[in-house]
Design a protein around this nucleic acid. Sequence first.
DNA 1: CCAAAAATGGACCGGCAAGTCCAGAATGAG
DNA 2: CTCATTCTGGACTTGCCGGTCCATTTTTGG
Lengths: 204, 204
Amino acid sequence: MPDAPTAKGRATRARIVEGAAEVLREQGVVFTTLDDIRGRTGTSKSQLFHYFPDGKDELLLAVAQFEADRVLADQQPHLGSLDSWESWYRWRDAVVERYERQGDECPLGSLFLQVGRSRPGSRAIVTELMRQWQEQLARGMRALQAGGLVSPAFDVDRAAAALLAGIQGGVAIMMSTGDTSHLEAALDNAIENLRASATGHTGK
Amino acid sequence: MPDAPTAKGRATRARIVEGAAEVLREQGVVFTTLDDIRGRTGTSKSQLFHYFPDGKDELLLAVAQFEADRVLADQQPHLGSLDSWESWYRWRDAVVERYERQGDECPLGSLFLQVGRSRPGSRAIVTELMRQWQEQLARGMRALQAGGLVSPAFDVDRAAAALLAGIQGGVAIMMSTGDTSHLEAALDNAIENLRASATGHTGK
DNA sequence: CCAAAAATGGACCGGCAAGTCCAGAATGAG
DNA sequence: CTCATTCTGGACTTGCCGGTCCATTTTTGG
């Protein structure tokens, strides 16, 4: 029952998902019990299973979707308008800041390791997130091309894929080492490649 | 008792770690019990606690170290001698092939999510792995510089950090989507940047 | 060959957390 | 108003799994 008939029901369901997301971010998936979530959200066991009949996995999946939606939302409005060098730098700072704030907890990563193979839908969530993310990066690069700031010969798709990988890895490394330098290196490197392409094709 | 007095003891301990690593890779940390490990390694409960008195966490940490060591070992001999373009391409292929073979299981990642904050040593393992990995990449780039294949102005440290991030992210994306294109894009992109630097400084 | 230490086998315990159940309170339709 | 539906509370069950314990066997050092 992913949808609740009444308004009250929908509100409760949303409260559960948001509260669960909080707890999971604080304690980590492995160490969070349904009772923790129950306590945080002021609900009872039966409510949890009323809104998520398939139990913990279903709830975790809902939280995963919730967190996935936040990822791109947190990068707005910058990610949506990457059409000038300034906007790229602003976005770069927003990304670093967002993940610095998030600290060493990786809600999505751990969520999927838990749910992983058991639930079919889990993989789709992350795939879709990556697709949208990369698409927006590519769109930004094409905007630079359209503005004449980047060479038309520049391989946007590959650069966007590489940048996305760099961000993911930078974040992952930051999670485990506490060091943001890899994330920053990946971002700066990518932007500088874009800029190099701008002057690069003038060397005819 | 990380070390065992007798040869037999050391052998048993090693058998446990290796067997545990297998099971963990197959089933994932979350779904693996000590009994699974016991079954696979042909040992008894008391042996597990004999060699890992602090229980499951200590065993998982040992497996994490074991897996971390494999990561760099699997990239040899290529990673050790990145002194020509050919060697870089061979290494690139070895990395892709290694992670394609590994498939969608991330032994290290899940291991640390489980052990994570509870054990102090866990973070050190991954930090050290990243340090060594990046160092070898940087060394390879400097070898290219020394051979005159790459401009001396090239920022090796940043490029190495960005490349490492790209690899990590590429692998992470591959884990969850099954698609290796991001990993390949990150690798190809990095190598091409190196090559671009070679010709780039000739455009004086 | 013989103590002492190390290694092994496996029964057993205890707690915890997911999931069940039903009774009762709110809500909404007509 | 009233009856069906939805929502809520919380006690209870159940199985699992990490961890303990001790008896027994094997190895080692002298």
